[in-house]
């Protein structure tokens, strides 16, 4: 499967395209800053495209600002309402301060996931380093918010109440590890879903070509259904990322006490 030579051209001696070929990072503009490889890659390109797409869509749809919204404007309003309700329900009104961040995060991940659904594009969120960077921003940000709001008292978050003193040290360690798990589970969830889905699509696409006009219809039918499912997953994972950000914000703002 990990045939290097076959991977180079997405095909080759094995006759089967490499399903992992789509995740390859290519340098578009090689660039080195202070010895660090900061090349503009296809991943960077699609992140920029996601930002441009999302900004263009929101700017265009809100430029009219009619009282009775048109098609575009109502989609933008739905997105706004969706995230605003999510923040309000999960964090409460105190969390509306952080609404712009959650909204940007949701729209950015959604745009990345959806751009990845277009054939021949690159799915940024199928790389663990991208999702981990996003999760680390959420994790560090939420921790800072917690300490800024509660001061050193935020450490009480790790101390469960009503526990015998003998068990307390063990439980505090468990709580701290459970807290440190957040960025990892948050990033792995998004990355694994996107990567697995896109690999599946490629594998079944290869089945269609491999089985030809005779037997290729069954995997083709499956692929049509699976593409629909992937679009759902692309939306769902953006939603899950945003809602977990809300839950973590809620923990930081109203500590479990």
């Amino acid at each position: 499967m990990a045939n290097e030579q076959a991977g180079e051209h997405g095909g080759g001696s094995t006759g089967m395209p490499d399903p992992m070929h789509q995740f390859e990072i290519k340098r578009i503009l090689p660039l080195e800053i202070f010895g660090v490889d900061a090349s503009f890659t296809n991943a960077s390109l699609f992140m920029v495209l996601a930002v441009i797409t999302a900004s263009a869509f929101l700017l265009m749809s809100t430029s009219g600002r009619s009282l009775v919204p048109g098609r575009l404007q109502s989609v933008a309003e739905m997105a706004y309402e969706f995230v605003a309700n999510m923040v309000r329900e999960n964090v409460g009104t105190a969390g509306m301060k952080y609404f712009p961040f959650v909204f940007s995060l949701f729209i950015f991940i959604l745009a990345c996931n959806m751009l990845g659904m277009i054939p021949y594009t690159f799915t940024v969120t199928s790389h663990i380093i991208v999702t981990f960077a996003l999760a680390a921003v959420v994790f560090i940000g939420v921790t800072i918010i917690g300490f800024a709001r509660h001061g050193i008292g935020f450490l009480k978050f790790f101390v469960p109440s009503g526990v015998p003193a003998a068990l307390l040290p063990l439980l505090v360690v468990i709580e701290v590890i459970s807290y440190l798990t957040r960025p990892i589970s948050l990033s792995v969830r998004l990355f694994a879903n996107m990567m697995a889905g896109h690999t599946m699509l490629k594998v079944f696409g290869a089945f269609v070509v491999g089985l030809g006009a005779l037997g290729g219809w069954a995997p083709l039918g499956f692929m049509v259904a699976f593409t629909g499912l992937e679009i759902l997953v692309a939306f769902l994972q953006a939603y899950v990322f945003a809602i977990l950000t809300c839950i973590y914000l809620n923990d930081a703002i109203h500590m479990h006490h």
């Binding site: 590890i177 798990t181 990892i184 589970s185 792995v188 969830r189 879903n193 899950v240």
Partner: peptide
């Protein structure tokens, strides 16, 4: 996606614990 969510919860915690 709840099942997957919980699976990553457990795996990530074990990974963090092992690393520490």
């Amino acid at each position: 996606g709840y099942g997957f969510r919980m699976a990553t919860d457990i795996i990530a915690a074990v990974v963090v614990g092992t690393t520490i």
